[in-house]
């Protein structure tokens, strides 16, 4: 189900130099999985901004976004109490019904947020999860305490300024995990596909509609062309490998 929902901003907190956490109060009934996204309308901007849902409950949802251009800059200046229109909910989300012995939740940069809600779900199901978080540098880190309160959390930074030096894939010992959920930059996702491990990956792309009609975000998979917005953003390792 997709609704055009008017949300009220209840907080808009800066987490580091460019990453913000925004809490939106309003209808979350259309959401049913972690990894789905909303598409936010901004005044003066023609296209909506697709942003993944970090977490949600019956009263509202949380998004975490990085200021990368004028639209997200505009969002960062929005105040508590302001209204915001968003299409909710878009995309298929993560399938959390998978049974596995030891699961890695692998997030790179602003790919981490949807893994937070997922970590909560998997933990409530009693599953054995470990969070692997990758950043460029220590100053980019956010939400590490939040993740640590849910599950063992390891950090890697490309420049070695925090945690293990290197990419997030360096945090996985061979044979340690039998399943993964991932969201992050495409090189990270490609590196995970190369490990041969079974899992699910959340992709991103420039999109116009967000609900499967414009064909702006198509990708090729083993099962034919798929739309990242509608058939994804979560794809299985099997179809992407």
């Amino acid at each position: 189900m997709i609704k055009d929902v008017i949300y009220t901003i209840s907080s808009n907190l800066q987490l580091n130099s460019s990453v913000f956490e925004m809490r939106l109060d309003g209808d979350t009934a259309p959401l049913n999985k972690s990894g789905q996204f909303i598409d936010i309308a901004l005044s003066g901007k023609y296209l909506r901004r697709p942003i993944s849902v970090c977490d949600y409950d019956e009263n509202g949802l949380t998004i975490i976004y990085k200021v990368v251009g004028e639209g997200t800059k505009q969002m960062s200046n929005m105040q508590k109490g302001e209204k915001l229109s968003a299409l909710c909910a878009l995309g298929n989300g993560f399938d959390d019904s998978v049974t596995a012995k030891k699961i890695a939740l692998v997030g790179g940069g602003v790919g981490l947020p949807p893994l937070y809600g997922l970590a909560k779900r998997l933990k409530s199901q009693g599953k054995n999860i470990t969070v692997l978080a990758g950043f460029n540098t220590a100053a980019d880190m956010y939400y590490i305490n939040e993740f640590s309160s849910l599950a063992p959390t390891r950090v890697a930074t490309a420049d070695g300024s925090a945690g293990t030096k290197g990419f997030v894939t360096a945090l996985m010992d061979e044979g340690e995990f039998d399943y993964f959920y991932a969201c992050g930059p495409e090189p990270m996702l490609n590196a995970l596909l190369k490990t041969g491990l079974d899992g699910q990956l959340s992709y991103e792309a420039r999109m116009a509609c967000g609900f499967g009609v414009c064909m702006g975000c198509s990708c090729k998979t083993k099962l034919g062309a798929k739309r990242i917005c509608k058939d994804g953003p979560v794809m299985t390792a099997k179809e992407m490998r």
Binding site: K45, Y46, L47, A205, R206, M207, A208, C214, M215, G216, C217, S218, C219
Partner: peptide, 15 residues
């Protein structure tokens, strides 16, 4: 991809 770009009061597509 990318096939979409935002422009002032409009958009570009190269689907």
């Amino acid at each position: 991809l990318p096939r979409i770009a935002e422009t002032p009061s409009g958009m570009l597509n190269s689907v």
